[in-house]
Write a protein that binds this DNA or RNA. Structure first.
Length: 259
DNA sequence: ATGACAATCAGAGATTGA
């Protein structure tokens, strides 16, 4: 089963390039972030025509996450538990059933800038709730993954110019520590389980020719429970998409599981 | 230190992103 995460930066602007990528990459499950659309405006039919079941958790203008799955979507849950006041659409999870059931969590973690301030507080608070949800997934001992735009640069080698990010919410010690704390519970970060070294990125800013200078960062991650990690066959970043017409500033990251 | 670029909503320019 091939499962991809992709921050598309707006469904309306990405319908064509997203459709083309689905046709060629053929993910069984695509976890999309920043659909920037309410549920009613999400063009489900375009994906249903391609054989995908569609579940969305949308919001006007900002945020929004969606699951596209060629397999049936079961036990859908909307929103990250642990808050009565969080109205931002950043979490959707469901079970997809192939040979073996897999719980997939799709997340769009808050950016957190500027720091310090309420947005950074919200990021850290959100990550505490993420920790709690992650803990339950580990305790379940079932195959599960949490994938999406984490807005976290885990290590120096995940940025072309790490010095520039030193005071940024994506790279501040508090953010990285919260991420590391989740990993330490027993999650495997798919890409780093396969590849070491610098120069692998999933985001390049639209500004200042970042793509042409390969001034990127790796902030889109797939975290797998042990039972899921045991099934991993491959992991890759579809970097070539960043070179196309009207690209998102992120590119897809995907894993293939033997399930 | 700031803006650069893009998307959204709206119907100009502010807001958000990373």
């Amino acid at each position: 089963m091939k499962i991809a995460t992709f921050n598309i930066n707006g469904i309306k602007a990405r319908i064509n390039s997203l459709s083309a990528w689905l046709d060629e990459a053929q993910p069984d499950v695509a976890l999309l972030q920043e659909i920037k659309s309410v549920d009613e405006a999400f063009p489900k039919e375009i994906f249903e025509e391609r054989g995908y079941n569609v579940a969305t958790h949308g919001q006007k203008s900002f945020n929004g996450v969606a699951i596209l799955s060629k397999l049936p979507i079961e036990d859908l849950t909307i929103g990250l538990p642990g808050s009565d006041s969080d109205e931002q659409a950043r979490w959707i999870e469901a079970t997809v059933v192939g040979k073996q059931a897999l719980r997939v969590c799709n997340l769009y973690l808050p950016n957190g800038n500027p720091t310090p301030g309420p947005k950074f507080d919200y990021k850290l608070e959100w990550m505490e709730r993420l920790y709690a949800r992650a803990k339950l997934l580990i305790e379940d001992e079932l195959p599960a993954l949490m994938a999406g735009d984490y807005n976290i640069i885990p290590q120096k080698e995940d940025a072309e110019n790490p010095d520039r990010w030193m005071n940024d919410a994506l790279f501040l010690p508090q953010s990285r520590e919260a991420f590391r704390k989740i990993l330490a519970m027993g999650f495997t970060e798919a890409f780093r389980a396969k590849y070491a070294g610098r120069g692998h990125y999933s985001f390049w800013d639209y500004q200042a020719g970042a793509w042409n200078r390969n001034d990127g960062i790796r902030i889109d991650h797939i975290l797998m429970t042990p039972a899921c990690a045991d099934m991993m066959l491959e992991c890759a970043i579809d970097k070539h998409l960043r070179d196309r017409e009207k690209p998102s500033d992120h590119v897809p990251v995907w894993v293939r599981l033997d399930n």
